[in-house]
Design a protein around this nucleic acid. Structure first.
Lengths: 227, 227
DNA sequence: CGCTACACAATTGTCGACAATTCTTGAGTA
DNA sequence: TACTCAAGAATTGTCGACAATTGTGTAGCG
Protein backbone atom coordinates (compact mmCIF):
# COMPACT_ATOMS: atom_id res chain seq x y z
CA UNK A 1 0.00 0.00 0.00
CA UNK A 2 3.02 2.21 0.16
CA UNK A 3 2.96 4.88 -2.53
CA UNK A 4 6.46 4.56 -3.85
CA UNK A 5 6.76 7.08 -6.65
CA UNK A 6 3.93 9.49 -6.97
CA UNK A 7 4.67 11.25 -10.17
CA UNK A 8 7.08 8.75 -11.54
CA UNK A 9 5.36 6.52 -14.03
CA UNK A 10 5.67 2.76 -13.66
CA UNK A 11 9.07 1.84 -15.04
CA UNK A 12 8.05 1.65 -18.65
CA UNK A 13 11.43 2.45 -20.11
CA UNK A 14 14.90 1.10 -19.40
CA UNK A 15 15.90 4.45 -17.99
CA UNK A 16 13.04 4.27 -15.49
CA UNK A 17 14.05 0.83 -14.34
CA UNK A 18 17.67 1.80 -13.81
CA UNK A 19 16.62 4.97 -12.03
CA UNK A 20 14.56 3.01 -9.51
CA UNK A 21 17.37 0.55 -8.89
CA UNK A 22 20.02 3.19 -8.36
CA UNK A 23 17.72 5.33 -6.25
CA UNK A 24 17.15 2.39 -3.98
CA UNK A 25 20.85 1.58 -3.85
CA UNK A 26 21.78 5.13 -2.90
CA UNK A 27 19.01 5.61 -0.37
CA UNK A 28 19.86 2.34 1.34
CA UNK A 29 23.57 3.05 1.21
CA UNK A 30 24.66 0.09 -0.87
CA UNK A 31 26.23 2.74 -3.07
CA UNK A 32 28.18 4.68 -0.50
CA UNK A 33 27.79 8.43 0.04
CA UNK A 34 30.57 10.37 -1.64
CA UNK A 35 31.49 7.55 -3.99
CA UNK A 36 32.09 8.19 -7.64
CA UNK A 37 29.35 7.30 -10.14
CA UNK A 38 31.26 5.94 -13.10
CA UNK A 39 29.08 5.77 -16.19
CA UNK A 40 30.80 2.80 -17.86
CA UNK A 41 30.83 0.88 -14.61
CA UNK A 42 27.18 1.50 -13.76
CA UNK A 43 26.10 0.83 -17.31
CA UNK A 44 27.72 -2.57 -17.18
CA UNK A 45 26.42 -3.32 -13.70
CA UNK A 46 22.79 -2.53 -14.55
CA UNK A 47 23.03 -3.97 -18.06
CA UNK A 48 22.04 -0.94 -20.09
CA UNK A 49 23.76 1.37 -22.50
CA UNK A 50 25.11 4.69 -21.36
CA UNK A 51 22.23 6.61 -22.95
CA UNK A 52 19.46 5.51 -20.56
CA UNK A 53 21.95 5.53 -17.72
CA UNK A 54 22.73 9.17 -18.31
CA UNK A 55 19.04 9.96 -18.43
CA UNK A 56 18.66 8.22 -15.08
CA UNK A 57 21.58 10.16 -13.67
CA UNK A 58 20.03 13.41 -14.78
CA UNK A 59 17.01 12.50 -12.73
CA UNK A 60 19.14 11.43 -9.78
CA UNK A 61 20.65 14.89 -9.83
CA UNK A 62 17.17 16.34 -9.90
CA UNK A 63 16.31 14.66 -6.62
CA UNK A 64 19.63 15.67 -5.09
CA UNK A 65 21.00 12.14 -4.69
CA UNK A 66 24.06 12.84 -6.82
CA UNK A 67 26.05 15.93 -7.77
CA UNK A 68 27.45 16.36 -11.24
CA UNK A 69 30.19 18.58 -12.54
CA UNK A 70 30.50 18.96 -16.30
CA UNK A 71 33.20 16.89 -17.95
CA UNK A 72 34.16 15.47 -14.59
CA UNK A 73 31.39 13.11 -13.55
CA UNK A 74 29.07 12.62 -10.64
CA UNK A 75 29.37 11.66 -6.99
CA UNK A 76 26.81 10.43 -4.50
CA UNK A 77 25.86 13.17 -2.04
CA UNK A 78 27.22 13.08 1.48
CA UNK A 79 25.00 13.49 4.51
CA UNK A 80 25.83 16.48 6.67
CA UNK A 81 24.21 18.29 9.57
CA UNK A 82 23.99 21.44 7.47
CA UNK A 83 22.33 19.55 4.64
CA UNK A 84 19.83 18.02 7.01
CA UNK A 85 19.03 21.42 8.48
CA UNK A 86 18.55 22.99 5.04
CA UNK A 87 16.34 20.11 3.96
CA UNK A 88 14.12 20.23 7.00
CA UNK A 89 13.84 24.01 6.97
CA UNK A 90 12.30 23.59 3.55
CA UNK A 91 10.14 20.64 4.50
CA UNK A 92 8.65 22.51 7.45
CA UNK A 93 7.63 25.36 5.22
CA UNK A 94 6.42 23.30 2.29
CA UNK A 95 4.55 20.64 4.18
CA UNK A 96 3.00 23.30 6.34
CA UNK A 97 1.71 24.90 3.16
CA UNK A 98 0.60 21.49 1.90
CA UNK A 99 -1.44 20.99 5.06
CA UNK A 100 -3.08 24.36 4.77
CA UNK A 101 -4.01 23.71 1.16
CA UNK A 102 -5.11 20.16 1.93
CA UNK A 103 -7.49 21.50 4.54
CA UNK A 104 -9.02 23.63 1.80
CA UNK A 105 -8.89 21.24 -1.11
CA UNK A 106 -9.08 17.64 0.04
CA UNK A 107 -12.29 15.82 -0.78
CA UNK A 108 -14.23 14.28 2.08
CA UNK A 109 -13.56 10.74 0.93
CA UNK A 110 -9.85 11.47 0.68
CA UNK A 111 -9.90 12.52 4.31
CA UNK A 112 -11.78 9.35 5.21
CA UNK A 113 -9.15 7.29 3.42
CA UNK A 114 -6.45 9.11 5.32
CA UNK A 115 -8.14 8.21 8.61
CA UNK A 116 -8.48 4.58 7.59
CA UNK A 117 -4.84 4.52 6.61
CA UNK A 118 -3.76 5.79 9.98
CA UNK A 119 -5.86 3.19 11.80
CA UNK A 120 -4.49 0.43 9.63
CA UNK A 121 -0.96 1.52 10.41
CA UNK A 122 -1.74 1.58 14.07
CA UNK A 123 -2.76 -2.06 13.85
CA UNK A 124 0.36 -3.24 12.06
CA UNK A 125 2.44 -1.06 14.30
CA UNK A 126 1.23 -2.88 17.40
CA UNK A 127 1.82 -6.24 15.81
CA UNK A 128 5.24 -5.63 14.37
CA UNK A 129 6.65 -3.48 17.10
CA UNK A 130 9.88 -1.88 16.03
CA UNK A 131 10.09 -2.98 12.44
CA UNK A 132 11.26 0.32 11.21
CA UNK A 133 10.53 -0.22 7.55
CA UNK A 134 6.79 -0.43 7.98
CA UNK A 135 6.77 2.49 10.27
CA UNK A 136 8.74 4.54 7.83
CA UNK A 137 6.53 3.47 4.95
CA UNK A 138 3.45 4.36 6.94
CA UNK A 139 4.77 7.77 7.82
CA UNK A 140 5.69 8.53 4.24
CA UNK A 141 2.32 7.31 3.03
CA UNK A 142 0.63 9.74 5.39
CA UNK A 143 2.72 12.66 4.28
CA UNK A 144 2.33 11.78 0.61
CA UNK A 145 -1.45 11.78 0.81
CA UNK A 146 -1.59 15.17 2.43
CA UNK A 147 0.82 16.59 -0.09
CA UNK A 148 -1.31 15.21 -2.92
CA UNK A 149 -4.34 16.64 -1.17
CA UNK A 150 -2.92 20.13 -1.57
CA UNK A 151 -3.70 19.85 -5.29
CA UNK A 152 -0.75 22.14 -6.05
CA UNK A 153 1.24 20.41 -8.80
CA UNK A 154 4.48 22.32 -8.21
CA UNK A 155 4.37 21.66 -4.51
CA UNK A 156 3.66 17.98 -5.12
CA UNK A 157 6.52 17.74 -7.56
CA UNK A 158 9.05 19.36 -5.26
CA UNK A 159 8.16 17.35 -2.18
CA UNK A 160 7.40 13.92 -3.62
CA UNK A 161 9.85 13.81 -6.50
CA UNK A 162 12.74 16.04 -5.52
CA UNK A 163 13.06 16.13 -1.76
CA UNK A 164 11.65 12.90 -0.38
CA UNK A 165 14.37 10.57 -1.56
CA UNK A 166 16.87 12.59 0.39
CA UNK A 167 14.62 12.54 3.43
CA UNK A 168 14.43 8.77 3.16
CA UNK A 169 18.19 8.57 2.70
CA UNK A 170 18.80 10.43 5.95
CA UNK A 171 16.30 8.27 7.78
CA UNK A 172 17.43 4.94 6.44
CA UNK A 173 21.15 5.52 6.75
CA UNK A 174 20.86 6.88 10.27
CA UNK A 175 18.59 3.98 11.26
CA UNK A 176 15.45 5.73 12.43
CA UNK A 177 13.53 3.47 14.78
CA UNK A 178 13.55 5.39 18.00
CA UNK A 179 10.85 5.87 20.62
CA UNK A 180 9.21 8.56 18.52
CA UNK A 181 6.86 6.14 16.83
CA UNK A 182 3.87 6.32 19.13
CA UNK A 183 4.14 10.08 19.45
CA UNK A 184 4.17 10.42 15.69
CA UNK A 185 0.87 8.56 15.52
CA UNK A 186 -0.75 11.01 17.89
CA UNK A 187 0.61 13.92 15.93
CA UNK A 188 -0.71 12.45 12.71
CA UNK A 189 -4.12 12.06 14.26
CA UNK A 190 -4.20 15.68 15.37
CA UNK A 191 -3.25 16.80 11.88
CA UNK A 192 -6.01 14.77 10.32
CA UNK A 193 -8.53 16.26 12.70
CA UNK A 194 -7.45 19.77 11.79
CA UNK A 195 -7.77 18.98 8.11
CA UNK A 196 -11.17 17.36 8.62
CA UNK A 197 -12.30 20.51 10.44
CA UNK A 198 -11.02 22.53 7.49
CA UNK A 199 -8.77 24.42 9.88
CA UNK A 200 -5.86 25.10 7.58
CA UNK A 201 -4.04 27.37 9.97
CA UNK A 202 -3.96 24.76 12.72
CA UNK A 203 -3.05 21.95 10.32
CA UNK A 204 -0.16 24.09 9.11
CA UNK A 205 1.08 24.71 12.63
CA UNK A 206 0.79 21.08 13.70
CA UNK A 207 2.63 19.83 10.65
CA UNK A 208 5.48 22.26 11.21
CA UNK A 209 5.84 21.04 14.76
CA UNK A 210 5.63 17.45 13.64
CA UNK A 211 8.44 17.92 11.17
CA UNK A 212 10.43 20.00 13.60
CA UNK A 213 10.27 17.17 16.12
CA UNK A 214 11.30 14.71 13.44
CA UNK A 215 14.28 16.87 12.60
CA UNK A 216 15.42 17.02 16.20
CA UNK A 217 15.13 13.26 16.34
CA UNK A 218 17.38 12.83 13.34
CA UNK A 219 19.80 15.50 14.51
CA UNK A 220 20.39 13.53 17.68
CA UNK A 221 21.18 10.41 15.72
CA UNK A 222 23.49 12.37 13.47
CA UNK A 223 25.42 13.80 16.41
CA UNK A 224 25.69 10.42 18.09
CA UNK A 225 27.12 9.09 14.89
CA UNK A 226 29.56 11.97 14.67
CA UNK A 227 31.08 11.20 18.06
CA UNK B 1 24.48 43.06 -14.32
CA UNK B 2 21.47 40.86 -14.64
CA UNK B 3 22.12 37.47 -13.05
CA UNK B 4 20.76 35.18 -15.71
CA UNK B 5 21.39 31.68 -14.43
CA UNK B 6 22.51 31.39 -10.90
CA UNK B 7 23.42 27.77 -10.57
CA UNK B 8 23.68 27.03 -14.24
CA UNK B 9 27.26 26.96 -15.29
CA UNK B 10 28.34 29.09 -18.25
CA UNK B 11 27.34 27.16 -21.34
CA UNK B 12 30.39 24.95 -21.51
CA UNK B 13 28.75 22.07 -23.30
CA UNK B 14 26.54 21.92 -26.37
CA UNK B 15 23.64 20.83 -24.24
CA UNK B 16 24.04 23.96 -22.10
CA UNK B 17 24.01 26.22 -25.12
CA UNK B 18 20.90 24.65 -26.58
CA UNK B 19 19.18 24.76 -23.20
CA UNK B 20 19.73 28.49 -22.92
CA UNK B 21 18.48 29.13 -26.43
CA UNK B 22 15.32 27.08 -26.02
CA UNK B 23 14.65 28.48 -22.56
CA UNK B 24 14.77 31.96 -23.99
CA UNK B 25 12.56 30.99 -26.91
CA UNK B 26 9.91 29.46 -24.67
CA UNK B 27 9.96 32.25 -22.08
CA UNK B 28 9.63 34.89 -24.77
CA UNK B 29 6.96 32.93 -26.59
CA UNK B 30 8.75 32.47 -29.90
CA UNK B 31 8.04 28.81 -29.32
CA UNK B 32 4.33 28.94 -28.62
CA UNK B 33 2.75 27.55 -25.46
CA UNK B 34 1.19 24.16 -26.06
CA UNK B 35 3.19 23.49 -29.20
CA UNK B 36 4.87 20.17 -29.77
CA UNK B 37 8.61 19.84 -29.16
CA UNK B 38 9.77 17.56 -31.95
CA UNK B 39 13.23 16.20 -31.26
CA UNK B 40 14.36 15.80 -34.88
CA UNK B 41 13.06 19.25 -35.77
CA UNK B 42 14.68 21.02 -32.81
CA UNK B 43 17.92 19.13 -33.28
CA UNK B 44 18.12 20.37 -36.87
CA UNK B 45 17.08 23.90 -35.94
CA UNK B 46 19.71 24.30 -33.22
CA UNK B 47 22.36 22.33 -35.09
CA UNK B 48 23.07 19.61 -32.57
CA UNK B 49 22.54 15.90 -32.37
CA UNK B 50 19.59 14.47 -30.52
CA UNK B 51 21.73 13.44 -27.54
CA UNK B 52 22.49 16.90 -26.17
CA UNK B 53 19.04 18.05 -27.21
CA UNK B 54 17.41 15.37 -25.08
CA UNK B 55 19.62 16.37 -22.17
CA UNK B 56 18.45 19.94 -22.62
CA UNK B 57 14.83 18.82 -22.75
CA UNK B 58 15.25 16.90 -19.52
CA UNK B 59 16.34 20.14 -17.93
CA UNK B 60 13.49 22.06 -19.54
CA UNK B 61 11.12 19.61 -17.91
CA UNK B 62 12.88 20.21 -14.62
CA UNK B 63 12.05 23.91 -14.74
CA UNK B 64 8.48 23.18 -15.80
CA UNK B 65 8.73 24.77 -19.22
CA UNK B 66 7.78 21.57 -21.04
CA UNK B 67 5.83 18.44 -20.15
CA UNK B 68 6.93 15.04 -21.36
CA UNK B 69 5.06 11.80 -21.65
CA UNK B 70 7.09 8.64 -22.27
CA UNK B 71 7.15 7.39 -25.82
CA UNK B 72 4.95 10.27 -26.89
CA UNK B 73 7.06 13.40 -26.73
CA UNK B 74 6.97 16.79 -25.09
CA UNK B 75 4.85 19.92 -25.33
CA UNK B 76 5.46 23.48 -24.17
CA UNK B 77 3.42 24.27 -21.06
CA UNK B 78 0.35 26.44 -21.34
CA UNK B 79 -0.26 29.38 -19.05
CA UNK B 80 -3.38 29.12 -16.93
CA UNK B 81 -4.86 31.02 -14.00
CA UNK B 82 -4.66 27.88 -11.87
CA UNK B 83 -1.03 27.40 -12.77
CA UNK B 84 -0.23 30.98 -11.91
CA UNK B 85 -2.00 30.64 -8.58
CA UNK B 86 -0.14 27.44 -7.71
CA UNK B 87 3.16 28.99 -8.70
CA UNK B 88 2.69 32.10 -6.63
CA UNK B 89 1.37 30.22 -3.61
CA UNK B 90 4.72 28.49 -3.59
CA UNK B 91 6.71 31.61 -4.26
CA UNK B 92 5.11 33.44 -1.38
CA UNK B 93 6.04 30.69 1.00
CA UNK B 94 9.53 30.04 -0.35
CA UNK B 95 10.64 33.61 -0.80
CA UNK B 96 9.23 34.45 2.59
CA UNK B 97 11.46 31.75 4.01
CA UNK B 98 14.35 33.03 1.92
CA UNK B 99 13.92 36.48 3.42
CA UNK B 100 13.82 35.14 6.95
CA UNK B 101 16.99 33.14 6.36
CA UNK B 102 18.65 36.02 4.53
CA UNK B 103 18.04 38.25 7.55
CA UNK B 104 19.94 35.68 9.59
CA UNK B 105 22.66 34.70 7.17
CA UNK B 106 23.49 37.52 4.79
CA UNK B 107 26.86 39.15 5.31
CA UNK B 108 26.96 42.87 5.92
CA UNK B 109 28.65 43.60 2.62
CA UNK B 110 26.05 41.55 0.78
CA UNK B 111 23.37 43.75 2.29
CA UNK B 112 25.32 46.84 1.26
CA UNK B 113 25.55 45.53 -2.29
CA UNK B 114 21.82 44.91 -2.28
CA UNK B 115 21.22 48.53 -1.27
CA UNK B 116 23.55 49.80 -3.97
CA UNK B 117 21.78 47.65 -6.49
CA UNK B 118 18.42 49.09 -5.60
CA UNK B 119 19.72 52.65 -5.86
CA UNK B 120 21.28 51.92 -9.22
CA UNK B 121 18.00 50.53 -10.47
CA UNK B 122 16.19 53.56 -9.23
CA UNK B 123 18.47 55.72 -11.36
CA UNK B 124 17.99 53.78 -14.56
CA UNK B 125 14.31 53.49 -13.79
CA UNK B 126 13.92 57.26 -13.80
CA UNK B 127 15.82 57.60 -17.03
CA UNK B 128 14.18 54.81 -18.99
CA UNK B 129 10.64 55.19 -17.75
CA UNK B 130 8.55 52.23 -18.76
CA UNK B 131 11.13 50.05 -20.41
CA UNK B 132 9.89 46.89 -18.91
CA UNK B 133 12.92 44.76 -19.60
CA UNK B 134 15.20 46.67 -17.30
CA UNK B 135 12.57 46.85 -14.67
CA UNK B 136 12.00 43.14 -14.85
CA UNK B 137 15.72 42.43 -14.79
CA UNK B 138 16.12 44.70 -11.81
CA UNK B 139 13.34 43.02 -9.91
CA UNK B 140 14.69 39.56 -10.59
CA UNK B 141 18.19 40.65 -9.62
CA UNK B 142 16.83 41.82 -6.28
CA UNK B 143 14.99 38.60 -5.60
CA UNK B 144 17.91 36.46 -6.71
CA UNK B 145 20.30 38.11 -4.28
CA UNK B 146 18.01 37.62 -1.34
CA UNK B 147 17.44 34.00 -2.27
CA UNK B 148 21.18 33.46 -2.49
CA UNK B 149 21.52 35.24 0.81
CA UNK B 150 19.44 32.55 2.48
CA UNK B 151 22.42 30.21 2.05
CA UNK B 152 20.03 27.26 1.77
CA UNK B 153 21.13 25.30 -1.30
CA UNK B 154 17.85 23.44 -1.81
CA UNK B 155 15.84 26.62 -1.54
CA UNK B 156 18.17 28.36 -3.96
CA UNK B 157 17.92 25.51 -6.42
CA UNK B 158 14.13 25.38 -6.37
CA UNK B 159 13.59 29.10 -6.74
CA UNK B 160 16.37 30.12 -9.10
CA UNK B 161 16.61 27.04 -11.27
CA UNK B 162 13.20 25.45 -11.25
CA UNK B 163 10.56 28.10 -10.68
CA UNK B 164 11.92 31.38 -11.96
CA UNK B 165 11.80 30.61 -15.64
CA UNK B 166 8.09 30.03 -15.34
CA UNK B 167 7.69 33.24 -13.39
CA UNK B 168 9.48 35.09 -16.16
CA UNK B 169 7.37 33.34 -18.77
CA UNK B 170 4.17 34.57 -17.16
CA UNK B 171 5.53 38.09 -16.86
CA UNK B 172 6.96 38.36 -20.33
CA UNK B 173 4.07 36.79 -22.17
CA UNK B 174 1.49 38.86 -20.33
CA UNK B 175 3.53 42.02 -20.87
CA UNK B 176 4.18 43.24 -17.36
CA UNK B 177 4.90 46.96 -17.40
CA UNK B 178 2.07 48.39 -15.37
CA UNK B 179 2.01 51.19 -12.80
CA UNK B 180 3.32 48.86 -10.12
CA UNK B 181 6.92 49.79 -10.76
CA UNK B 182 7.36 52.63 -8.31
CA UNK B 183 5.47 50.80 -5.61
CA UNK B 184 7.70 47.77 -6.07
CA UNK B 185 10.75 49.92 -5.40
CA UNK B 186 9.33 51.09 -2.10
CA UNK B 187 8.49 47.55 -1.14
CA UNK B 188 12.00 46.42 -2.02
CA UNK B 189 13.44 49.16 0.14
CA UNK B 190 11.34 48.12 3.12
CA UNK B 191 12.45 44.54 2.71
CA UNK B 192 16.10 45.54 2.64
CA UNK B 193 15.67 47.55 5.80
CA UNK B 194 14.12 44.59 7.58
CA UNK B 195 16.98 42.36 6.49
CA UNK B 196 19.56 44.94 7.53
CA UNK B 197 17.89 45.12 10.95
CA UNK B 198 18.09 41.32 11.10
CA UNK B 199 14.34 41.26 11.55
CA UNK B 200 13.60 37.99 9.79
CA UNK B 201 9.96 37.87 10.77
CA UNK B 202 9.22 41.27 9.27
CA UNK B 203 11.26 40.57 6.14
CA UNK B 204 9.25 37.38 5.70
CA UNK B 205 5.96 39.21 6.03
CA UNK B 206 6.91 42.03 3.69
CA UNK B 207 8.14 39.66 1.02
CA UNK B 208 4.92 37.67 1.15
CA UNK B 209 2.93 40.84 0.67
CA UNK B 210 5.21 41.96 -2.10
CA UNK B 211 4.72 38.74 -3.99
CA UNK B 212 1.04 38.65 -3.24
CA UNK B 213 0.68 42.12 -4.79
CA UNK B 214 2.68 40.98 -7.77
CA UNK B 215 0.36 38.02 -8.21
CA UNK B 216 -2.71 40.20 -8.14
CA UNK B 217 -1.11 42.40 -10.75
CA UNK B 218 -0.53 39.47 -13.06
CA UNK B 219 -3.94 37.98 -12.38
CA UNK B 220 -5.55 41.17 -13.63
CA UNK B 221 -3.56 41.01 -16.85
CA UNK B 222 -4.50 37.38 -17.27
CA UNK B 223 -8.19 38.10 -16.86
CA UNK B 224 -8.04 41.02 -19.27
CA UNK B 225 -6.44 38.74 -21.78
CA UNK B 226 -9.08 36.06 -21.20
CA UNK B 227 -11.91 38.41 -22.20
C1' DC C 1 -22.89 5.52 -41.72
C1' DG C 2 -20.04 4.47 -37.77
C1' DC C 3 -16.83 1.52 -35.59
C1' DT C 4 -12.87 -1.70 -35.38
C1' DA C 5 -8.58 -3.49 -36.92
C1' DC C 6 -4.62 -3.52 -39.42
C1' DA C 7 -0.61 -1.62 -41.76
C1' DC C 8 2.26 2.28 -42.52
C1' DA C 9 4.71 6.41 -41.17
C1' DA C 10 6.78 9.14 -37.81
C1' DT C 11 8.66 9.78 -33.37
C1' DT C 12 10.94 8.32 -29.20
C1' DG C 13 14.18 5.13 -26.79
C1' DT C 14 18.53 2.68 -27.08
C1' DC C 15 22.91 1.24 -28.80
C1' DG C 16 27.89 1.29 -30.06
C1' DA C 17 31.62 4.20 -31.67
C1' DC C 18 34.11 8.53 -31.98
C1' DA C 19 35.60 13.23 -30.20
C1' DA C 20 36.79 16.24 -26.50
C1' DT C 21 38.00 16.94 -21.94
C1' DT C 22 39.86 15.73 -17.50
C1' DC C 23 42.60 12.95 -14.39
C1' DT C 24 46.87 10.35 -13.64
C1' DT C 25 51.50 9.16 -13.92
C1' DG C 26 56.09 9.81 -14.33
C1' DA C 27 60.10 12.20 -16.09
C1' DG C 28 62.67 16.23 -15.65
C1' DT C 29 64.36 20.40 -13.20
C1' DA C 30 65.32 23.57 -9.53
C1' DT D 1 62.73 16.41 -2.01
C1' DA D 2 59.23 19.17 -3.98
C1' DC D 3 57.40 21.16 -7.94
C1' DT D 4 56.21 21.67 -13.03
C1' DC D 5 54.90 19.94 -17.06
C1' DA D 6 53.87 16.78 -20.63
C1' DA D 7 52.22 12.35 -22.43
C1' DG D 8 49.07 8.63 -21.75
C1' DA D 9 44.87 6.58 -19.96
C1' DA D 10 40.33 6.97 -18.67
C1' DT D 11 36.02 9.33 -18.52
C1' DT D 12 32.49 12.34 -20.26
C1' DG D 13 30.12 14.54 -24.26
C1' DT D 14 28.40 13.91 -28.92
C1' DC D 15 27.13 11.60 -33.10
C1' DG D 16 24.62 8.63 -36.44
C1' DA D 17 22.02 4.41 -36.94
C1' DC D 18 18.84 0.89 -35.30
C1' DA D 19 14.90 -0.86 -32.37
C1' DA D 20 10.56 -0.11 -30.17
C1' DT D 21 6.57 2.39 -29.51
C1' DT D 22 2.91 5.58 -30.72
C1' DG D 23 -0.14 8.04 -33.87
C1' DT D 24 -2.49 8.01 -38.39
C1' DG D 25 -4.90 6.77 -42.29
C1' DT D 26 -7.33 3.39 -44.70
C1' DA D 27 -9.76 -0.70 -45.55
C1' DG D 28 -13.10 -3.91 -43.93
C1' DC D 29 -17.08 -5.19 -41.21
C1' DG D 30 -21.36 -4.67 -38.66
Amino acid sequence: MHIENVLLRPPVTASDRVLLEIQKAIVEGSIAPGSKMSEPELAKRFEVSRAPLREAMARLERCHLIERTPNAGARVVTLTPQGLLSLYQLREELEGLACRLAAENMAEDEITELRDLLNAHLQTQRVREGESYYQEAGDLDFHYRIILGSKNPYLINILCDELYFLVRMYRVQLGMNGPRVSRAFDEHKAIINAIANRDGELADLLMRRHIGASRQNIEIQLQNKGN
